[in-house]
Design a protein around this nucleic acid. Structure first.
Lengths: 196, 196
DNA sequence: AGTGTTAGTGTGCGAATGAACACTTGGCCC
DNA sequence: GGGCCAAGTGTTCATTCGCACACTAACACT
């Protein structure tokens, strides 16, 4: 069974712990988590993980915190039988959720979507739109515009040289703004969560 | 309640510290940060902030971690109604997206979606499905099953006491597996990128 | 004036924490 | 076999940590 790196398993437990508690546990707790009997083993584990950039020290060097690769997820490309772990062997590559969607963190905001006006574009009520501000919008982009002092998510279109907002739902009309069209940002991503 | 809440200032310093070090500092360090002379003052500050949901305790109740409102950022630019945007910025927490979707990091796999069989559920070709393995799937869940050695994404349904796979596209037939249905995992999230 | 509340001081204490060091164990290579 | 190296054990120790408790000073409200 065990022919994938044992540290991979340990890292998984650390990640799960972090998922619940949002922090790297103390050496003692790592021992409990991994079944170690000695804190030294825990520390050596952290040093190994530091070597591979999964964890790092705080600027003050007084505690461990997750580093960049800590949030790597695997991207499965080939089908894998349900029992097996997905590892590099059977077609998986590292994938970072945030890097995938957010390119300009300082200009990116997340806006919850309300309403069904874009449902034919696969954008449902309750989804979260990832919106980049200060980026020039062009025809065909999905944009967040401010109309009547409210956010609205629509496709940006052009009609007779003027910008219009096109919903993706036949029940909604095209919005043809009278004056200036105020564009808040361009939608660069979508995030949806299924709870169960 | 008062408009110049001193705790607002304290919270700011905590947020800055967290931005650098990704953790809530110890009581002692809080004293240095805030200019307190007594750790009790630091603890009471945390209790106040806990009351307003800026910080909370870990599930094991052995440390402080940021809570929901800790990452709150007002847009400040103009009074914006309707669905307050949440900034993904400010160094405070660049990994919000990951936290939002991924609950069990070690069991979560990302799988690119191919084909249009789920298009009526707002799942398009090119989207990335966030899939949690080893979680019991129930009727109504969207699951990744393995059929003919390939991943397939469908809703899990029940017909005459047997599991079936229901596409969300009238052009596709319901899949009624002959033998055992092999379920790879349950879809817990969706990520889409609009290139630009 | 009396009472209560809130932010903060000062002190002591047991428990948890991380670092250091010597040692063991098992796999691998020649 | 012998040497080497990585993972893990066992132990000691100073420090830090969180917590409890007693106390104070400022302010608000009747």
């Amino acid at each position: 069974m065990s022919e994938y790196d044992k540290d991979q398993e340990y890292l998984g437990r650390l990640q799960d712990y972090y998922g619940d508690s949002r922090r790297i546990p103390s050496l003692q707790r790592i021992c409990e988590l991994m079944g170690y009997a000695s804190k030294t083993a825990a520390k050596k584990l952290l040093l190994r993980l530091e070597n591979e950039q999964f964890v790092e020290r705080t600027p003050d060097d007084d505690a461990w915190i997750p580093a960049s690769r800590f949030f790597e997820r695997s991207l499965a490309t080939d089908a894998v039988p349900a029992g097996m772990p997905v590892s590099a062997e059977n077609g998986a590559e590292p994938f970072m959720l945030d890097d995938y969607i957010v390119k300009k963190p300082s200009r990116t905001v997340m806006i919850p979507v309300k309403g069904d006006s874009m449902i034919d574009a696969g954008i449902h009520s309750g989804d979260v739109a990832v919106v980049e501000r200060g980026t020039g919008a062009v025809k065909g982009d999905i944009v967040v515009a401010i109309v009547d002092n409210e956010f609205t998510l629509k496709e940006l279109g052009v009609e007779r040289g003027k910008f219009v907002l096109i919903p993706h739902n036949p029940a909604f009309p095209i919005i043809r703004p009278k004056g200036e069209l105020e564009i808040f940002g361009v939608m660069v991503g979508l995030v949806r969560r299924y709870q169960h």
